[in-house]
């Protein structure tokens, strides 16, 4: 029995020791992992920051530019060169441009208080028109009076007033048809006479 007792005891202590050791190992591992995660992340940030002060600051704005900039790239290759034009009308900064000349903006980049409606601008995927509200010489609000209907950003807003219509690139079809519908001289003449009439109206005004 006695012999068994110490044996038991020693085995018991050995188990405790083993347990404590494994517990320590586990805790250490977890602590190390946590430490690695935290310090590792910091370390990366520091590494970028170390590359230069200005680049680390650019990291912050760039994710904001991406979501607003990306949707303006129209899938049609033709529009690619004009992309900067198409992007600008929807952005609030442009709203201040049409508004600025009208109230003769003050030299310090301040505007005369009031509400200014910008021109309707072709944004390639639709027309854009904004209303700028200037309060205390500063741009206080920009409201969209007209927006394109085929972009994700505008669909949310437009779906209330207008249905969302799908769009597709036209493609030549080779299937046989019985009849063909297409524009004719009649409608062209209508459009041209309309234009002439309106040109005259503009000239006389």
């Amino acid at each position: 029995m006695a012999k068994n007792q110490p044996a038991y005891k020693s085995s018991f202590f050995r188990k405790i020791k083993k347990f404590s050791l494994s517990a320590f190992m586990v805790v250490t591992f977890v602590a190390y992992t946590l430490h690695e995660h935290l310090v590792g992340a910091d370390g990366r940030n520091i590494a970028i920051a170390a590359a230069g002060g200005p680049p680390s600051q650019q990291v912050v704005p760039s994710p904001q530019v991406a979501p607003t900039g990306t949707p303006f790239v129209f899938p049609t290759p033709e529009t690619a060169p004009a992309a900067p034009q198409s992007a600008s009308p929807t952005l609030p900064p442009t709203a201040t441009q049409p508004a600025a000349p009208t109230p003769t903006a003050a030299a310090k980049g301040q505007y005369k208080s009031g509400t200014y409606v910008g021109p309707v601008v072709d944004a390639y995927y639709g027309y854009v028109q904004v209303k700028a509200v200037v309060q205390n010489g500063q741009l206080a609000n920009v409201q969209f009076m007209q927006y394109p209907n085929d972009r994700f950003t505008s669909v949310r807003i437009n779906s209330i007033a207008m249905p969302y219509l799908t769009s597709e690139a036209i493609q030549a079809q080779s299937a046989n048809v019985d009849i063909i519908t297409g524009a004719t001289l009649t409608s062209e003449a209508f459009a041209q006479s309309l234009q002439t009439a309106l040109d005259a109206a503009r000239a006389s005004s």
Binding site: I170, A175, I179, T181, G182
Partner: peptide, 11 residues
């Protein structure tokens, strides 16, 4: 009846 829509860019 099968009606084709003419391509405005290529009659």
């Amino acid at each position: 009846w099968r009606v084709g829509i003419r391509n405005p860019f290529n009659p």
